[in-house]
Amino acid sequence: MRTGTNPYHPAPHKRPALAVALLTAGALLVSAGCAKEDDAPSAGSSKPRAVKAVEGCGKAAWTDPADLAEGREPARCDKGAPAPRPLDAKKKITIATGTLSAEYVAPLQMAVEKGEFAKEGLDVDLKVLPTPDALPLLAKGDIDAQWAAPEAAVMNGINGGFAIKWVAANYSPPAESHSGLWVRLKKGETADHVPMAGRKVGTMIGKGSVIAYPMGKSLRKHGGGLDKVQFQQLGSADVLTALQNGGVDSAWLLDPVWQKIDGDPKYAFLGGQPLGEPLGGLLFGPNLLHKDVDAGVALLRAYVRTVNTYFRGDYKSDAGFVSELAKLLKVDESILKSTPSLRMDWEIRKGTTDRLQQAYADAGVAEGEKVPESKAVDRSLYAEAVGHRE
């Protein structure tokens, strides 16, 4: 379903996700002309940049990356902050995204609609591309950024030396959300403990997706694991049907599909994405990491300002804004209202890429040595945007 709020809805694509992840990683490693970190210009984000205090962005504009508390308040500046600092010359930026209709893309859409990117001197083009197709273009510098996640293919590409980094997060789910792993209970079973080893799991998401991490976490709580269950990949319209008719024992259900069985005693919710820990967001390639860091900071400044201005707290409590958002995303307003507001969050938690890579290893889709966080994550650009000094 393309109109839900989970960022990991795959765009229409016929290739199996596991094969896509592995083939994409291979394409990244051999693609001629891709920029590697060793080949990048020296004037990149690795060099110290002057970070100035930003009006409207105080202590609340930065949280300790090591804070994994589920109730952690996401970082926030005042509305309208950080203020624009237009580039000397207008800059064209292309951002790839798998969809333009999912709620998690709303800050990008709204930043274009409200002119927040334009205020920075950026002409931003949001280009719909499936993640496997966009990654090689990002690595080569043919596109500037990607709204995606550090999936297995991304980490495998970074492991090969390419200048791709996760530079800003997107959201974490609200506590009320039950998007995640659901199981059909057998006779005598309760939601407290459901033996998952050996069961068949239906999912539209491959093992190389970031969802492997929370799925594995939920499975382990119930005696299972990514290596102890059978996966059956299904289309978005078939996952719930297969769970209901016995085709699979459990399934990863996205927003708002899970609401159709929520409260039904025949089913139990085992867990979803960790609260307070975003699993996706903006990936930068060599263009914004090294060649034009000022433009990269400007893009993040506009993104952060959009979150602070339009997506604070329960933004769906404003009926007028929900209507505007539904029109912008071209989704049914009733669907948008049916799920709680996302916790929009630009900050990346410490250790997330380590936990993701462990899940990929457990699922058998990791290649090469583990990528250290310093090679996969760069928090310095959004830190500069909000005036945070380490």
Rank of each mutant, 00 (worst) to 15 (best):
T3A: 13
G4H: 06
Y8I: 13
R15G: 11
A25F: 02
A27H: 13
C34I: 13
P41D: 06
A43D: 15
S46Y: 15
P48E: 07
V51Y: 06
A53H: 09
V54I: 03
G58V: 10
A60V: 04
D64V: 00
L68E: 05
A89F: 10
A89S: 15
K91H: 11
S101E: 14
E103C: 02
V105H: 11
L108M: 09
V112K: 13
L135C: 08
G141V: 00
D142P: 12
A145R: 06
V154S: 05
M155S: 11
G157L: 04
G160K: 02
G161D: 08
F162Y: 15
F162K: 15
A163H: 12
A163R: 12
V167A: 11
Y171S: 11
P174D: 14
E176S: 14
H178K: 15
S179D: 15
E189Y: 00
M196N: 01
I205V: 13
I211E: 12
S218P: 05
L219V: 02
G225N: 01
K228F: 01
V239R: 04
A242H: 05
V248P: 01
A251S: 05
L254T: 03
L254V: 08
K260I: 08
F269S: 13
G272S: 07
Q273F: 14
L279G: 13
L282I: 08
P286Y: 08
L288V: 06
H290S: 12
K291N: 14
D294Q: 11
A295D: 14
V304S: 06
R305H: 03
T306Q: 04
E324C: 03
E324Y: 00
V331L: 06
D332Q: 11
E333P: 07
E333W: 00
L336T: 03
L336P: 11
P340H: 09
L342P: 08
D345G: 07
W346L: 10
W346G: 04
K350C: 11
A361N: 14
A363D: 04
A366H: 03
E373D: 06
L381Q: 12
